[in-house]
Design a protein around this nucleic acid. Structure first.
Length: 763
DNA sequence: TCCGCATGCTTTTTT
DNA sequence: AGCATGCGGA
């Protein structure tokens, strides 16, 4: 029964079995975090807790799905009644159920980012504001940030600091836009992603009919995964749900502050840093053993992350001492970088029998994938790029969904705008603008405007036709299932016909995508699942749409095909590979130029690098190019500062070949000198002259490093790579101690070595 | 209404 | 370079 407990180490077991009270699990990379979470939930069930009393929140659907599958394996089908999902999906479900209490229809629409932006554009245009100053993305970000800070439009308008900040960026009218935006969403019966949290918070806070106590009583055990990525609002909800601070709370948060990489979208790292002071008697459990990576990777990661000040103390370690060092690859151009990475991939596969699917190329920005794509294709290496448009964001998919959305919620203004004249039926921009204008003047929904407004006879008859299509489908939705309605919509709307006319490759693809959507709906209808809390899952069109709106990630990954993975570092979080290539290790790229003058953003970039490095089990290659095409021009970037933050003893830096008599000076990357602006110190910028020296002769078999705490000023020491040297000084404290050592055989400045990592033998 | 060209702007991304 | 957006002309 509790066989699973034996599969855990001591701290893991403690995290799994400490069921009562607040628990904070700091889970280093590869430390078995998912295992702990799943076993903990299984353990709760085995300890007699009812599944519907457990709430487990994740950030992605994928994470929730995978965890659920694993729990079902251990604890059986009752796990289906757990409340488990993303913050958004769980709260959307509750909001739907309690919709009458917040004045929303239960079939409310969820606006995705595109919808939100479209609403905002409409407002900005109508207010005749300059769309460059009031750039939609910026405005949306401000509004989203406001909601995340629980600032209503009224508060926003009153808040001096916020207003003066907008004033400074010459956008004094954002508060007006915000107010109108909220009104418009309400009129459309729509919530954006932030609203799912925002409105849920206010539902609890305003507590109509005691809903707050209802859900507090319901969710007796709460778990939150990836807690370092929660924002202020999510934390506020968590505190409210867990009855904080009135009583004892059974909250278990799991995360790693060192892997917090989503501050740019509101994640607040202080949530995890301050958790201990927010809750009382928090049991802190650290999972510090890394089962994933070799010592070279673990120590490199530890070393680089030590450059970040704000951190929860932990010591990640591994017992895997075998393995190659971290490789640094230096290329002249981006093309050469890609070529050589492709070459290494071939070599790993042919000589070391590593499968393609065990290798990944990680980059900072999606745009970097191009060169690699090209060269992988040339080298006949199968690959798959992740990221970019998801299935549900494709135009043809959204087009059909717009009809379905309108069927479920006719007030959905964005769906109406999208579908009314696509396929074309002669309702042009002018007519649409009139409708929107009328709707906004009279504060009614666009749909109502369309039925009330007098327009030229021709337009009127087109509108009538359109209304009839929607009405017909609405009638159908009452008796038929979601699939039947969707199929009918694809025909009646004329979308299928339109797509069939396009016989180009992309056109055929689009049609296939629409069919794939229909298939997906069919699958949804036929699947017989039990939903959260043990309810029989709702198969209506409306519930399908709700699902789909939050279901952006369709995981295309499968285990059958053998291909190299290409993705951004962000999307690699949580994954692991035998071999990792982190490419574009250059200033301006990684760290991104956007972050260069903000130390806290540099810290986030560093955490991102930490995530990248720790994805690797054994092989890690970091590459940079001296020049590359960027924004249509050749740019020269210095090697990333992060490369200098790696411990030398775990690195294989590219040093020019040792000169053989008679051989011409090396060519290609081996002649690459530090660029003129290059930094002075650091292993990879060493001048060719000094690094070309023969390495100091040390008898490695007799080398016995002394304990780092014994190293002191004035000692003569030996280092495997640098040879004999004298300790000039030691500064810093505890595991941050750094020794300054002058090595006899290595010219130039004395070296500064982190004692925690440097292997030195006292002579 | 629609198409085509000019212009401008480039991080990361989940829900 | 590539993409999205916007404006102007047919």
């Amino acid at each position: 029964m509790s066989e699973y407990l034996n599969q855990l180490n001591d701290s893991q077991r403690e995290a799994v079995t400490t069921l009562e009270g607040p628990v904070m699990v700091i889970a280093g990379p590869g430390s078995g975090k998912t295992r702990v979470l799943t076993y903990r939930i299984a353990h709760l069930l085995n300890s007699g807790v009812a599944p519907w009393n457990v709430l487990a929140l994740t950030f992605t659907n994928k994470a929730a799905r995978e965890m659920k599958e694993r729990i079902v394996d251990i604890a059986g089908s009752r796990s289906n009644s757990l409340w488990m999902g993303t913050f958004h999906s769980v709260f959307a479900r509750i909001l739907r159920r309690e919709s009458d209490k917040i004045g929303y229809p239960s079939d409310f629409t969820i606006y995705d980012t595109e919808d939100s932006k479209s609403v905002l554009n409409e407002i900005i245009k109508e207010m005749k504001l300059d769309k460059n100053t009031y750039n939609v993305n910026g405005v949306r970000a401000r509004i989203s940030a406001a909601k995340t800070q629980l600032i209503s439009p009224e508060q926003y308008a009153k808040d001096e600091r916020i207003r003066s900040r907008d004033q400074m960026s010459r956008r004094p009218y954002i508060h007006v836009i915000y107010e109108r935006y909220v009104k418009r969403c309400e009129r459309a019966g729509a919530m954006d992603f932030d609203d799912l949290l925002y409105k849920f918070y206010y539902l609890l806070r305003d507590n109509p009919e005691g809903v707050k106590e209802k859900y507090q009583a319901q969710f007796q055990y709460i778990l939150v995964d990836e807690f370092q990525d929660t924002n202020f609002l999510q934390y506020a909800i968590l505190k409210m749900l867990s009855r904080y601070p009135e009583s004892k709370q059974n909250v278990c948060i799991v995360g790693d502050d060192a892997q917090s990489i989503y501050a740019f979208r509101g994640a607040d790292i202080s949530n995890i840093l301050d958790f201990q002071s927010e809750y009382q008697d928090v049991k802190v459990i650290k999972l510090e053993q890394n089962y994933r990576s070799t010592i070279h990777i673990v120590n490199s990661a530890n070393h680089l992350i030590s450059y970040n000040k704000k951190q929860i103390k932990k010591k990640i370690w591994t017992d895997k001492t075998e393995g190659p060092k971290v490789k640094i690859l230096r290329a002249l151009t981006d093309t050469e970088e890609a070529k050589r990475v492709a070459g290494l991939i071939q070599e790993y596969r042919n000589r070391h029998y590593i499968e393609y699917k065990e290798m990944a190329i990680l980059y900072r920005t999606n745009a970097q994938s191009r060169a690699f794509e090209e060269h992988l294709r040339k080298a006949n290496i199968p690959y798959k790029i992740f990221g970019g448009l998801s299935f549900f964001q494709r135009k043809e998919v959204k087009d059909l969904l717009a009809y379905l959305r309108l069927v479920v919620n006719e007030n959905d203004s964005e769906a109406l705008k999208r579908s009314i004249n696509y396929p074309r039926r002669g309702i042009g921009k002018t007519s649409l603008d009139k409708m929107l204008d009328y709707a906004n003047k009279n504060e009614i929904s666009t749909w109502r405007a369309l039925t009330e407004l007098q327009l030229p006879p021709r337009t009127t008859s087109s509108i009538k036709e359109f209304v009839q299509i929607i009405r017909h489908l609405q009638g159908m939705a009452k008796e038929s299932n979601a699939y039947q309605v969707a199929l009918e919509a694809s025909k009646l709307s004329g979308l299928e016909k339109l797509l069939k006319q396009d016989t180009s490759i992309e056109g055929v693809n689009r049609l296939q995508n629409m069919y794939a959507l229909l298939d997906g709906i069919k699958e949804f209808v036929e699947a017989d699942e039990i939903g959260e809390g043990g309810e029989v899952a709702n198969k209506s069109l409306s519930s399908y749409l709700q699902n789909v709106a939050l279901m952006t990630d369709l995981d295309q990954a499968n285990n059958e095909d053998d291909y190299v993975t290409l993705m951004t570092i962000h999307s690699a979080k949580g994954l692991e590979f035998e071999a990792i290539f982190v490419v574009g290790m250059e200033e301006n790229i990684f760290p991104s130029f956007m972050t260069l003058n903000d130390p806290s953003q540099i810290d986030e970039e560093r955490r991102l690098f930490y995530v990248a490095v720790t994805r690797s089990k054994r092989l890690l290659t970091l590459s940079h190019a001296k020049s590359r095409y960027q924004y249509g021009q050749i740019r020269y970037n210095d090697p990333s500062r992060f490369l200098e933050e790696l411990p030398e003893e775990h690195i294989d830096a590219p040093t020019p070949k040792v000169k053989v008599i008679g051989e011409a000076p090396g060519k290609g990357y081996n002649t690459y000198d530090a660029s003129p602006k290059g930094r002075v110190s650091g292993h990879f910028n060493r001048s060719p002259r000094s690094s070309a020296r023969p390495s100091p002769k040390i008898d490695t078999s007799n080398f016995r490093p002394s304990p780092s705490d014994k190293i002191a000023k004035g000692q003569q020491v030996l280092h495997l790579k640098f040879g004999k040297g004298k300790v000039l000084s030691v500064d810093g404290s505890r595991d941050k101690r750094v020794a300054t050592i002058r090595f006899e055989d290595v010219g130039g400045e004395p070296k500064r070595l982190m004692l925690k990592f440097a292997k030195l033998q006292i002579v």
